[in-house]
Structure formats: structure tokens, C-alpha cells
């Protein structure tokens, strides 16, 4: 296997996101379609069923800087959420508490991050955690 360069990997991810070819439980796209560097992304995660998150939609921002995908993106919740891996004052996802970022692999993607966060919400220890008011935000 050869190594796909950052920009072409992000273009592939964008195309998958734009055409809705991926999972229905999440969505993602560029914040600014004029951003030739493709750094700043928006994402959403649909709360998993049979949990306190059911029927909620969480908004996130994802920053894929120059070192992506060698290094993980910086992922931040905009919607307030009570999860152990999310900083409660900033919404930032802590790579030390979230394996997908902490043990990042080049083959991962924005979609994998969003779907793994969704799994995190559905964990037995997390799915009943008291949640902030729906629609509240970190900014």
C-alpha cells in the first residue's frame, strides 16, 4: 500500500461526507468551501438509541491541521455533553481518555472519530449519565 497524501485523503473524506455515502448516524463537511487547506470541519453525531442521548443531535468541530492524518484531528463538542472524555468547560475531547484519538492510526478518518464517540455515549457506564439541557453549547 502506498501512502495517500493528506489533501487527497481529506478530499476522499469530503466526497464521502458530501454524497452521504457513510453512516447515517453522523455527518461531516468543510466549514468553508473556499478553504483550500481543508482544515476546519463541522460534524454531527446522532445520539445512540436506548440511552440518555437518544434523539439528540450533537454538533462538533474538527480541526485537521497540517500534520493530519499522521496525527489525530482536534475534536471539540459545540453542544454540551456529559462524557468522561469531554472537557466540561471547553468541550474538547481529551485524547488521553478517548482511545481513537490517543492511539490514532493513519487509516482512521473523521467518520471513525464521530462513530467511536457515538459508541462512547452508548457505553454502559455512560449511557445514563445526567446530561446538560438539550441545545446548550460550550461557546
Amino acid at each position: 500500500m502506498s501512502t495517500i497524501p493528506r489533501n487527497f485523503k481529506l478530499l476522499e473524506e469530503l466526497e464521502k461526507g458530501e454524497k452521504g455515502l457513510g453512516s447515517e448516524s453522523c455527518s461531516y463537511g468543510l466549514q468553508d468551501l473556499d478553504d483550500l487547506t481543508m482544515t476546519y470541519w463541522n460534524g454531527t453525531v446522532l445520539g445512540p438509541p436506548n440511552s440518555v442521548h437518544s434523539n439528540r443531535i450533537y454538533f462538533l468541530t474538527i480541526e485537521c491541521n497540517e500534520s493530519y492524518p499522521e496525527n489525530p484531528p482536534i475534536v471539540k463538542f459545540q453542544s454540551k455533553i456529559n462524557l468522561p472524555c469531554v472537557d466540561q468547560t471547553t468541550g474538547l475531547v481529551d485524547p488521553k481518555k478517548f482511545k481513537t484519538l490517543g492511539e490514532w492510526k493513519r487509516s482512521y478518518s473523521i467518520e471513525i472519530v464521530l462513530l467511536e464517540l457515538r459508541k462512547e455515549m452508548a457505553l454502559p457506564g455512560n449511557k445514563k449519565l445526567a446530561q446538560p439541557k438539550e441545545g446548550s453549547t460550550y461557546f
Partner: peptide
């Protein structure tokens, strides 16, 4: 990678 105004090239190049 250079911005260009062309009907067959989009804003992301």
C-alpha cells in the same frame, strides 16, 4: 492548489 476562476474547476481546486 492555486485559486482559479474556471467553470470546470471548483473552489477547492
Amino acid at each position: 492548489l492555486t485559486k482559479i476562476y474556471h467553470p470546470n474547476i471548483d473552489r477547492l481546486g
